[in-house]
Each structure stands twice: as C-alpha cells, then as structure tokens.
C-alpha cells in the first residue's frame, strides 16, 4: 500500500510545533524609541494609512511594502510595520500568514508563480511546474518557484507570473529562457506576455496540446 499524503506531515504549517520562548518579552506594540524603521518604508506606510478612513486598512499595502524591502514578512519587517501602524506584530502576523502572496520565510529574488489550477493543469501546468522547479533547483538565491491557484489567465494556459508579469502559453521548452530573462532582468518572454494579447486571440493557443498531465503523472 502506498502512503496517503498526510496534511500535517507533507504540509506542515511552520509554527504548528512551535512553543513560546519564556526568555522573550510579550510582543506589544513596538516602542518607536527603540524600533528602527527605514524612512522610505515609514513614508510609504504613512501615505497608505492616510488613504483610508481607518488606518488599519493600510495593513496589506504596508505588508507589501515591507516585503519588497525585506524580501519576506520577517519578524523584523513585521515589527517595523507594527511600529508605524501602532498595532501589535501579532496582528500583522495573523494577517500576513492569511494571504498567499505574503511570504512567511526567506525566498529567492524572483517570484515565479506557476498556475496549477484546473484550466492550466488541463494543459500541462503540472509538467511545466516540475520543469521550472528542476531548472531553478539549486538557485534558491534567485528563484521562488511556487505553484499557485488560478491566476486569472486561463486563456494563455499553461501560464506563469514572473515577478508579476503574466506569460503564456508556456511549453517546457520556454523554461530556460524564462529563467534566464528573469535572472538577467530582461523582459520575460516578450512575445508571450499577456499584455500583448488580443481578446480571444486566435493565435494564442494554435500550438498542439502538450503531452497530457495524466500521462506524466506529475499530479499524483
């Protein structure tokens, strides 16, 4: 018998097994006197807070800003945001860990979200994810390869979002150039960018269907 993948074993959320450290002080709203906040970040957050009737609405914008500065929502990043927003870091942590785009651990410079939802996987997204994963393996410095839920671009399935830029339809052959463009800061696969696509572009999916996900079993 083969083991069933266990939620909680193969998919532990970091922290499930974490006890608290009695050496630490309780995490209250950081004291501006002791908590250093980069001026740039402070400005962004304060500007964001000013846009809303209730400053807490700025939480997600603030976390986005902190993440782009620190690379992920690190404890330090959360403390800095908490200090400016006058909330507890725990409040921010509970928000940050709720959303997929806010990273809970250090990640590579370039985010590569590969859509593996229905429409994309019908067109071989799982093979694509595997390929990108392989190609990027060992370069965690540069790449944060993640499978993602429907990114809202099923018309260019299978697709990926590279640092926010949608590209597709992708085939396994595109992978090397995709990573290369990203690594070297060039526009990623310019002719496959969603931005250039017409509504229901007849060219878009003229390519033959890729070998089907079922056969390569990468989804099992």
């Amino acid at each position: 018998m083969t083991p069933v993948p266990r939620l909680g074993d193969d998919a532990r959320a970091s922290g499930w097994d974490r006890a608290t450290d009695p050496e630490k002080d309780p995490a209250l709203i950081p004291d501006p006197a002791t908590c250093e906040v980069p001026a740039q970040l402070r400005e962004t957050i304060e500007a964001a807070m000013a846009r809303y009737p209730d400053r807490r609405s700025a939480t997600i914008p603030a976390l986005h800003a902190a993440q782009s500065l620190h690379g992920w929502c690190s404890p330090q990043a959360l403390e800095q945001v908490a200090c400016v927003m006058r909330v507890t870091p725990a409040y921010l942590d509970s928000v940050a860990s709720f959303y997929d785009m806010l990273e809970q651990r250090p990640v590579g410079r370039h985010s590569v979200y590969v859509c593996t939802n229905i429409s994309c996987s019908l067109r071989g997204a799982d093979a694509l994810l595997a390929a990108i994963g392989e190609a990027a393996a060992g370069d965690e410095e540069n790449f944060n390869v993640r499978s993602f839920e429907c990114l809202g671009a099923c018309d260019i399935a299978p697709m990926a979002s590279v640092d926010g830029v949608y590209v597709g339809p992708l085939s396994v052959e595109d992978v090397p150039q995709l990573l290369d463009d990203a690594r070297s800061g060039r526009p990623v696969l310019p002719d496959k960018q969603l931005a250039t696509r017409l509504v229901a572009d007849p060219r878009a999916n003229s390519q033959e269907f890729p070998a089907h996900a079922v056969e390569d079993g990468s989804s099992r």
Partner: peptide
Amino acid sequence: RANLIVPPVPADEQALFAHGAS
C-alpha cells in the same frame, strides 16, 4: 496498481501546501 507498481505521490500536494497558504 497499488499492489503491482508503486504509483508516485502527488507532487502538487506538497507544492500546494508547502508553499500555498503557508
């Protein structure tokens, strides 16, 4: 199949959850 060959364990299961919401 389970008794004959060993089928692969879903990779996307890990993928979805190891990253996903975590």
